[in-house]
Design a binder for these strands. Structure first.
Length: 916
RNA sequence: GCAGGGGUUCCAGAGCCAGGUCAAAUGGGCGGGACUUAAGAUCCUGUGGCUUAGCGCCUUCGGGAGUUCAAAUCUCCCCCCCUGCACCA
């Protein structure tokens, strides 16, 4: 297998088969999402690239000048984080590299340098792609941190700024206080993605300042009966923005990421309870009480108490023995509950105290119900649903200065790889790309409407995403990539520098040979926008021509997970920068690859590195299995039996070809005509399937079902001759299994029936010929097939191996008439009436009633009635097959005139059988 | 919660848009048989139940209700699963 793969890969390379000229004929430009080289690739990565490759190869065979380029995305922090982890001797990652990918420890020692790491893994990935036989033009390779590419991205941002889409503001980000940097999932212990959530800190007048109570449910301010503090914790008096606040001491580190705080004094939780506070809405005086459930490190460490609706508050109140003393106050009405849902649920669940773990469950249930089905019964928002009131109350408190917005990590506590507890920092000087801009959105929608989306059902996802996209933070304080042109201390983050790089491919092979400083904004203005200015580099004209030739992008490919970000940004940025004639034409998204039905994951260790898989099964097998296992949008499954099934069929195809396709075909008989009819039908259907990437359907048609046809044909043909068949079939399947196809193409030698080409990879795609499709022949063959089934099942029931003689009776004319009536009338009564009007049928009234009854069951499904001549003809030609199949004489006669009782069982299309 | 995608016979997975030929393709697994010294591969065959010289009956396509001569397919309600809701590549 691998020898064969290499043989053809070398020859393709030597012939520069996949390096198109920047001119000539109809072009087709397609790109998959470029890989991120911080690990080797596994079998799952291969699906998108294989899908793209099959498309590229098909288009090439359709005579298009195809460009399929590749580059590497290294932007952002994951590569840096990976190098650091290796340097730090992180056993988890080292173990994965060693066990799954077979990278030696000495090799890993070199990968502590990010550049070395990029080089190593990108070479690894490139080698893998070559071994998969991808028809990539590697001359255009670049890395997203190359200075040439940087120049291009800086130009892009200049254009975005000119269009008014770049903005500056403040932004909350997950932050590690130890490394003093923003953190993403790859920076946290356990790779947890920190979720930032907005909360509200309501300020309750207290002593000389305010108690800051952070809450998710500001709307319950109307039901506050008291304030909770943790009596065993330390509290602090702090000054912030000219105001005095009281918060837990432990909360200060995380709060100071967001607020400017000066500590002015300290007091114990117990001291706090000696004073009372006031409700900022009503001015009502409320006590400050102690509760053990209050976590001083969480939020502000001060909690407002709404015992009617919050189970913890109710339980703490009960634990404090204050139930009777402090009356509960209802805020929301909830179906199925009385005035105080928290109380009810605590009693119903039998929760003992605030330290009972069931309290958490009760809280989750009540919160969820109240938020969505609860209706406010107090205050100015009475009658409003919980969720809506929440937002309104929050805004009201914020604008009145009675609350401050805070952020927290909702899925915490999360620790960074450097040991810090991840908090939320509000970053000033954050730059954004404003995807919330309405006129921009409108243009994006226009582009989407013009594009083909495969599978089409994904279109709604794009529409939805365009709808909800808001300003996106586009800079980071660290990472690889391109410096932000309007603040050189910042880096452009990874989803923002990968939106129009497809345009760079069109000139990359020229640009990468130039000096980076030659790649000026003026040059790009000319190349991409046609705005000419003086003194451009001498390559400018060639670049302009290349871009104008290849753009727009004909097809963009990725897995489905990029729809909500990258692919939508891709649309936005194209419409922002390029004129309409260069807007992308199509986006194709595919599902993932499962391993034995399960998601691949590092922790399960069920990842097959792509190069290992190729070594084991061969490139064609991996290609075939990953794309043919499921519809485009569904996850496909990779498993050994499927892979082996493909291998054995390929071998069988090759063997049959070697045996029966040596010479030009001789006299063509029924069997050959039948086989070619089947093949041409499939060839006729193939183009539409290839164009819409229905690879599963194609693989079924051109591979599995065709294989079954061949089996039948071999059984049927007296002297098999398959020369024409293989000359047509090999190129048809070539996009899927190019190495196999090249080998077969070569072994076929000089072609007799199709146009020859040095490589099947660039041979014309075989045309289906309608005149070769013979439906009646196929019908006849099917008829014989069914008959064989029937005879076999009768033999089985008789427990007989062999028949002495088989007699077949073809149904009489009156039954055919009856069947026609049944098919037309569809209702028993009227059909019967009509039938009885026919003399011939009436002569068999009793039997006619029985037969009609049977037909009525599937009245509309009857289709056209086979003619008697058809059946006799089919039987005439099929008789030989039947005789050889069963090794006995076969007699064919008509039901009419026969006195065999069995004969009466015959139906049109379903002759009766008598075995003796 | 919002948005999208799903729930099919032992498993995977078609079919559903355009209702009937659907007990439901195809592959896998499993049972039986052929071949073989044997295993593997390959081939034949079975794989909801009951029947039976096939052409037959009953029950089934997440649950329920409806439309229709006819529903896996159309309509309505409900249940369950997956993905996304960003600043992360």
């Amino acid at each position: 297998m691998s020898q064969l793969d290499e043989k053809w890969q070398e020859r393709w390379q030597k012939a520069h088969l996949f390096e198109p000229k920047d001119e000539g004929g109809e072009k087709f430009f397609l790109t998959p999402a470029f890989p991120y080289p911080n690990s080797p690739q596994h079998i799952g990565h291969g699906r998108t690239y294989t899908t793209t490759d099959i498309y590229a190869r098909y288009m090439r065979m359709k005579g298009k000048n195809v460009l399929y380029p590749m580059a590497f995305h290294v932007t952002g922090t994951p590569i840096l984080a990976m190098a650091k982890r290796i340097a730090a001797g992180d056993e988890e990652i080292i173990g994965i590299f060693e066990k799954i990918y077979g990278i030696s420890r000495s090799k890993m020692a070199e990968l502590t340098d990010p550049n070395a790491l990029v080089r190593y893994f990108s070479e690894e990935i490139e080698a893998g792609m070559k071994k998969m036989g991808y028809s990539i033009d590697w001359r255009r390779k670049f890395y997203s941190y190359d200075p040439h590419f940087n120049a291009f991205i800086r130009w892009q941002f200049e254009k975005l700024r000119e269009a008014g889409y770049i903005k500056k503001g403040r932004h909350p980000v997950p932050w590690c206080p130890v490394s003093n940097a923003a953190v993403g999932a790859h920076d946290t212990q356990g790779d947890i993605d920190p979720q930032v959530e907005e909360v509200t800190a309501i300020l309750f007048p207290f002593l000389d300042g305010y108690l800051a109570c952070s809450t998710y449910r500001p709307e319950t301010i109307y039901g506050v009966t008291n304030i909770w503090v943790n009596e065993s914790a330390a509290y602090a008096k702090v000054k912030s923005g000219g105001r005095v606040l009281y918060v837990a001491k432990e909360a200060i580190p995380s709060l100071s990421m967001q607020l400017d705080l000066q500590v002015e004094g300290e007091l114990s939780g117990r001291e706090m309870t000696k004073s009372s506070a006031a409700n900022p809405i009503s001015g009502e005086k409320i006590p400050v009480l102690g509760a053990s459930f209050v976590n001083p490190a969480h939020g502000t460490g001060v909690v407002m108490s709404v015992p009617a609706h919050a189970p913890y508050d109710f339980l703490a109140l009960r634990d404090a023995g204050k139930l009777g003393e402090i009356p509960l106050k209802q805020v929301l009405r909830l179906d199925g509950f009385g005035a105080f849902p928290a109380e009810e649920i605590c009693r119903r669940m039998g929760i003992a105290s605030q330290s009972d773990p069931k309290a958490e469950e009760a809280t989750a249930e009540i919160y969820k119900k109240e938020a969505h089905t609860g209706v406010m019964v107090v205050g100015e928002f009475a009658g409003m649903r919980g969720v809506e009131a929440k937002e309104r109350v929050r805004q009201k408190l914020l604008s009145a200065g009675s609350a401050i917005p805070l952020y927290e990590i909702s899925n915490g506590p999360i620790y960074s790889r450097y040991g810090g507890l991840v908090g939320v920092k509000v970053v000033e000087d954050q730059w954004f790309i404003d995807y919330g801009d309405e006129t921009w959105k409108q243009k994006a929608r226009e582009c989407l409407a013009l594009m083909k989306i495969l599978p089409e059902k994904a279109r709604k996802e794009y529409e939805y995403t365009i709808g909800w996209l808001k300003a996106k933070a586009c800079t980071r304080s660290s990472g690889l990539g391109t410096r932000f042109p309007f603040d050189e201390s910042k880096m452009i983050e990874a989803l923002s520098d990968s939106t129009i790089y497809m345009a760079f491919y069109t000139i990359a092979h020229i640009a990468m040979k130039m000096k980076p400083e030659q790649l000026t904004h003026e040059l790009f203005d000319w190349v991409f926008l046609g705005r000419k200015s003086a003194g451009l580099a001498k390559e400018a004209e060639e670049m302009r021509r290349a871009f104008e030739y290849w753009y727009p992008l004909d097809s963009r490919h990725s897995a489905t997970d990029l729809v909500h970000n990258h692919l939508t940004f891709f649309i936005f940025n194209h419409v922002a920068i390029f004129p309409e004639k260069y807007w992308p034409r199509q986006i194709v998204t595919n599902g993932f690859v499962l391993m034995d039905g399960k998601k691949m994951s590092k922790s399960m260790g069920n990842i097959i590195p792509i190069r290992q898989a190729i070594a084991q099964f061969g490139a064609d097998t991996i290609r075939f299995v990953t794309v043919s296992g499921a519809d485009l949008s569904q996850d496909s499954d990779f498993n050994r039996p499927a892979a082996e099934g493909v291998i054995s069929r390929m071998e069988a195809f090759m063997e049959i070809m070697e045996r029966h396709a040596k010479e030009k075909d001789g006299k063509v008989g029924m069997a050959e005509r039948w086989l070619m009819s089947r093949l041409h039908k499939r060839l006729l259907a193939a183009p539409a399937l290839y164009e819409t990437l229905q690879l599963r359907e194609l693989s079924l048609e051109l591979f599995y079902n065709t294989f079954n046809d061949l089996q039948w044909y071999l059984k049927r043909a007296e002297k098999p001759q398959l020369r024409e068949f293989f000359e047509l079939w090999v190129p048809a399947i070539a996009p899927f299994v190019p190495h196999f196809a090249e080998e077969a193409w070569e072994r076929l030698g000089k072609k007799h029936y199709v146009m020859d080409a040095p490589f099947v990879s660039v041979a014309p795609f075989p045309k289906g010929d309608e005149s070769r499709v013979d439906e009646s022949l196929e019908e006849a063959e099917k008829y014989i097939g069914l008959l064989i089934e029937d005879i076999k099942s009768i033999l089985r029931i008789l427990r007989r191996e062999k028949a002495g003689k088989i007699e077949i009776f073809v149904a009489s004319a009156w039954k055919r008439k009856l069947r026609e009536i049944a098919a037309q009338e569809k209702k028993f009564d009227s059909a019967m009436k009509l039938a009885m009007a026919d003399e011939e049928i009436r002569a068999h009234a009793k039997e006619a009633a029985r037969v009609l009854q049977a037909y009525m069951k599937s009245a509309g499904a009857l289709g056209k009635t086979p003619a008697e001549e058809f059946e006799l003809e089919a039987l005439g030609s099929g008789k030989k097959v039947l005789e050889s199949e069963f090794g006995c004489p076969v007699l064919v006669s008509k039901e009419e005139g026969s006195n065999a009782p069995k004969a009466a069982f015959s139906l049109p299309g379903k002759p009766s059988i008598l075995i003796s």
